[in-house]
Design a protein around this nucleic acid. Sequence first.
DNA 1: GGCAAGTTGAAAATGAATTTCATTTTCAAT
DNA 2: ATTGAAAATGAAATTCATTTTCAACTTGCC
Lengths: 166, 166
Amino acid sequence: MLQKRIDDQPLLSREMMQEAEQILHNHLKRVGLKHTAQRDTILRTFLETREHLSMDELHRLVKRKDPRIGFTTVYRTLKLLAECGLASEVAFHDGIARFEHQYNRRSHHHMVCTECGSSVEFFSPEVDRLEQEIGRKHHYLTTRHTFQIYGLCERCGKKAASRPSS
Amino acid sequence: MLQKRIDDQPLLSREMMQEAEQILHNHLKRVGLKHTAQRDTILRTFLETREHLSMDELHRLVKRKDPRIGFTTVYRTLKLLAECGLASEVAFHDGIARFEHQYNRRSHHHMVCTECGSSVEFFSPEVDRLEQEIGRKHHYLTTRHTFQIYGLCERCGKKAASRPSS
DNA sequence: GGCAAGTTGAAAATGAATTTCATTTTCAAT
DNA sequence: ATTGAAAATGAAATTCATTTTCAACTTGCC
């Protein structure tokens, strides 16, 4: 399942990786939690990806580095990363929670192919502005929004067009 | 949990109700399914509401009219209604699938309070236009989108502001 | 009315997400 | 370095919304 990122930021440099680790460590200290090798491994593995990972997919990658790390720890660490802003959940509406890294990334949204599950990211400052505008109008203190477009990607669209059935 | 609808359409008239029933009946015929009293009861109950109902909530309402109708039938009928465009799922991201009627309604979106779960609907033609525009740009055949804003409603926002903790 | 096809609903199954708990690890204070 | 309290770990169990199963029951075309 391809998940194209049309980002401006091709890969995470060593410095950024370390800065992200620092963010996690500070967060751990702040809330009185402990620094463990597992958490570092999971964060590093997560940051090395450029995909929208499910818990399970990340666990599989993490196990390659340290087979003894269990699913539960990945699960809990991903929640921690979300807490300190390094990760965020993206709901592609297929029943599985996915996460992407959020550190130092531009605000963006996703368009998902309902046939093959692939997705592209796009940028739209207008959507961010709308959040503000509509929140103000209805007296909400807005914190975030989700905007997702569903449809058929070019490949699946062509396949569908050439298929005989309705 | 209040779910305010700032709609233009205060309630469903008898004619609209019958038209909706007709849509269901036509759909049933088209796909070779049968017309049953349960399905009618469930549709009618659903249309009488103005909320965003979970399966369970709708089942509870349906049971008031006919206590013998089971959850499974409500579940399957709601899927049927979604198939023929009378209902659609709204994911408020709280782990429960909710449905709203879609028949004869303006395109709209939701803003959800993350504290109390209440929601307001709003209208934004710009968002609909963006779906088209972005789909075209990336060669997707778009079919639908979700746009949801999360935050604190006026009440919860004030409560949070007056609370001493961070 | 008959009967094939579809429906019903209770109960069981599914599966992702979350919690439990016994064991192990971290880290601040010795 | 050692200690011990608090936290982390991970396998297994649990939860809970959703979906499927299946035997008994309707529906609607002949």
